[in-house]
Design a protein around this nucleic acid. Sequence first.
RNA 1: CGGGGCGUAGCGCAGCCUGGUAGCGCAUCUGCUUUGGGAGCAGAGGGUCGCAGGUUCAAAUCCUGCCGCCCCGACCA
Length: 439
Amino acid sequence: MRLSRYFMPTLREAPSDAQIVSHQLMLRAGLIRQEAAGIYAWLPIGLKVLRKIEQIVREEMNRAGAVEVLMPTLQLADLWRESGRYDDYGEEMLRIKDRHERDLLYGPTAEEVITDIFRAYIKSYKDLPKNLYNIQWKFRDERRPRFGVMRGREFLMKDAYSFDVDEAAARRAYNRMFLAYLNVYARLGLKAIPVRADTGPIGGDLSHEFIILADTGESQVFAHKDLVEMGAPGPDIDWDGDLQPLVDQRTRLYAASDEMHDQARFEAEATPDERMTARGIEVGHIFYFGEKYSRPMGAKVAMPDGTERFVQMGSYGVGVSRLVGAIIEASHDEAGIIWPDSVAPFGAAVVNLRVGEAAVDQVAEQAYQALTAAGLDPLLDDRDERPGAKFASLDLVGVPWQLIVGPKGVAEGVVEIKRRATGERQSLPLEAALKAITG
RNA sequence: CGGGGCGUAGCGCAGCCUGGUAGCGCAUCUGCUUUGGGAGCAGAGGGUCGCAGGUUCAAAUCCUGCCGCCCCGACCA
């Protein structure tokens, strides 16, 4: 992409509405534009990042055996009346009427719709297990939206729903999502901690929130240090095998958010050195809820003995748009955003320091073509700007590599490469520079 | 929903108390000079002062109502 033809509106100063760093940087780097409280337009850079995160989530869901669908943003109130939630949900639900005076709502979640789809087609235990997910915009009319996309009213969520024949099978489904989530966060360059979450009226121990560590996070988290460094299981585990040991390994160590925290237990289960208290951002929540929806909505399957049984369900949510903010909270410096390579809007930027000087233009163009051919989706900064302005805006936007082409270097037969994350620079001949970037 | 704050040019702000020509920085446009970390000089454009009503000879400024946005709390992906 040639920056002179692109749309990347950056700001030198953050709008005063933005209070936390991720929100400020998203506005300054031109990722989003606020249209109303908690409602944002996604500008090109922001959209690219959002799509990359979405794709990573998608790949890991697919790997773990989930199947993608796409459910509508608008849902029928009647479905929610079946589950009993239409009246319970309250002011957070955005309710609408169509021209026939029929009650609709903008979906805050999709248990009802997915259960409706499931019950229409799945009638036998032989068709289980199933896990269906979608990545779709949700709307919750929050009392107080805040912190940019971290708590928006309209937000992009991946929500998966598992259907199983009994609780043991449901636990296996739960375990797959538990581990898949850890893989997602690892690919996003985040350290995520699974913490016990409130299971509400269902009880049991099958609900976890995934918290990533960031000083500006909304929740307090108390955890055993080893859990933070334990890392993700990786993609190559046997998804159809027994995942319980891998889950146990990560759930037996103490971890709780403030509402579930038990200080006495914390002290009993971890030595002072092992105890870690930090701020965090919730970026996922998984939940087993049994027959909560299948029973009222009549989602049941025939068993081998001919009897019918309500399916056991779980739901698994990832805040995709929130992750954009969360990654920035976890990874930035004074100059701007530091994207992990996996979600960076561009793989590299070619910085032409002297647009219009033929020798420089030629090398920049050559670098741009080579990086394009290597699949890095580079940005060519061909704006008629001074070097400082270019460096500042590329640092702000957080492109992982800068390949800097200036008249001095060209005269000496070298270019400079700079790694955004470390600030490390190197002067190299073009071929070597390209090799360093493309690996 | 309780408490607090703020709405003046694209962004950041001053002006309001004490009513009288709407300002500053950045950004934008033109020209010249510059060109390895947000340049300099000269010039230019851009504002229903959130909206409505009221007071007044006169309202960004005072009064009333409404709307919007942000923060804290409670609540929540």
